[in-house]
Amino acid sequence: MGQLAAFIILSVVTLVSAVVVVASQNIVRSALSLIPTLLGIAGVYILLQAEYVAGIQVLIYAGAITVLILFVIMLTEHGTGARFRQVNEQVLPGTIAVAVLAALLMAVFFGTAWPRAAGTLPQYTATSIGTTFLTSAILVFIVTSFVLLVALMGAIVIARRER
């Protein structure tokens, strides 16, 4: 009951601010509206008892990615303060594409037999994530560091070209 109420509140917060993200004419407002959206999603993660994921959702997305996006906006020539039209002449094809995608996703969601209440939840999710990194997902763990290294190199290359 309480969980359902919490879920509804979080969904409303997430969806309303997500609409602002795509509908606002001011690009900075769009970027800042991402924060309630991401916090709402973090709340949903908590309802799923994935608190470490929720923590990094706030730390990475709300705290780091948003700042990155804001910097990018301030970097662009006419970015800040300008009014943007959020729609162009492609409205109709866009709407159709979105409707098809939504129908497809819903068909998949309702058509899949989700495993419910399988197994027990770990008490400390951060601990079990760490254990997975050191046992079954060890390769993923190491490869991730390489992926991040490559991302870093790419970021430097792109930024140097822009200068």
């Binding site: 923590g55 990094i56 706030v58 705290g63 804001l70």
Partner: peptide, 28 residues
Amino acid sequence: DLNIGVVFFAAMASLTVVGILAGGFASN
């Protein structure tokens, strides 16, 4: 006593950045 207390603390510190950046930006 959150299980991820330390991460939570870091996350809240990172949210302050957004508030400050937004305040500085909105002042024009």
